[in-house]
Design a protein around this nucleic acid. Structure first.
Lengths: 208, 208
DNA sequence: TCTCGGGTCAACCGATCGGTGGACCTCCGG
DNA sequence: CCGGAGGTCCACCGATCGGTTGACCCGAGA
């Protein structure tokens, strides 16, 4: 009954697109029906071609993989999404899954893992790289309220640009005291006690 | 006279390797004679296969693209190296060229650019992505002494970990005053005036 | 030989940061 | 209807940072 798996590949790097296509096209039961070079095109093509699944890069111009995933899933839950990322520390893992992705693999994964992932997701299962699965589990274990609020993230982003608390307040049209409050809260959540480490940690986790 | 161009592909990501191979193999005058998954293997295979050129990723396990390039060029200057990178802000651009690379392209480059780059390098020319060429030129223009000293880099790295000046001094067995001196110099070189921005900028440029 | 760059250290001062404790408002969901 | 979360704000204090000036040592290269 299950015929060929129709796949849409979305990645802004020509080299990576070619790689995914080459690996998948070598499989008799997989057919690449389209390629998108950014998030918006991924959404458009996904809705036009209605593939069985979209292999989607996280970081793309115009629309991130997360956002594109959410839009696709909103409009057509028959199209599944398999997200590819370069970094396992990426904070987008959670948001991608929340957005409705059915799988999350590392680009460093061997070819067999990618192909197996495509088949799994097409079959309605979930596909996760071992490293990513481990990370999810550990996040469950620790309370890890690594979720910064909108304001905390904004403030931290400006801290990363080297602005002083007062300057940040002016930029956001709030008092310096407010900025300090947000920072203290962010410090607590990140488990640090100075702005610089807060920024580097947030960067590592892809929070800013 | 010029026969087929023999290429060795070195990248730790299976997907990227497959992509490069797929793009190059489609060209009649290019032949991929081998693939390496890390820097050491790249060196070994380059010396064993003596390809016309190596397409080398910058970030690889066991041995970086820079180091691998240097080793290959040391032992055989007939083998040219074309370096591929994801980020144009990578500080390794200069070090790769110093190491003897004949080209430096972005992974985001279109397929034609990669293929043209391979032909250029094989012909003994230099291949640079426009964005990278522009960056090189601008670095020439501005005095841009973006070169931090060993000590300044060490200090900045510890700042990124959230250590105070005094703590850094203890870690490096020097006085707090010394740490401040190094930081002030680093600030000047980076054109910033606070530690956090210094760290984020240094990270962007791949200095730490 | 002398200069220069890198590394080390000191003292001082104003500005900023981090910590604490409290306060008020609004929106959302139980 | 009330509680909690997110956002805003205030005041006070000690610690730290950033800026400045000046100094010494050493090794490499002119």
């Amino acid at each position: 009954m299950s015929r060929v798996i129709r796949v849409l590949v979305a990645d802004d790097h020509a080299v990576v697109r070619a790689g995914i296509v080459a690996l998948l096209a070598a499989e008799p039961d997989i057919e690449v029906v389209g390629e998108a070079v950014d998030g918006e095109q991924a959404v458009d093509l996904a809705l036009a071609l209605l593939p069985d699944l979209v292999v989607m890069d996280v970081r793309m111009p115009r629309l991130t993989g997360d956002a594109a995933t959410a839009r696709i899933r909103e409009r057509s839950d028959a199209v599944r999404v398999l997200v590819l990322t370069t970094y396992e520390s990426d904070a987008s893992i959670l948001s991608a899954i929340e957005a409705g992705a059915s799988g999350y693999l590392l680009k460093a994964a061997p070819a067999e893992e990618l192909i197996a992932g495509v088949r799994s997701v097409a079959a309605g299962e979930v596909a996760l790289s071992p490293a990513i699965a481990a990370q999810l589990v550990s996040r469950m274990r620790e309370p890890a309220p690594t979720a910064l609020t909108t304001r905390e993230t904004e403030v931290l982003r400006l801290v990363a640009e080297g602005l002083s608390n007062r300057a940040i307040g002016e930029r956001l049209f709030v008092g310096e005291a407010t900025v300090k409050t947000h920072l203290v809260r962010a410090f607590e959540k990140l488990g640090v006690n100075d702005r610089t480490r807060a920024v580097t940690l947030a960067m590592e986790r892809g929070l800013i």
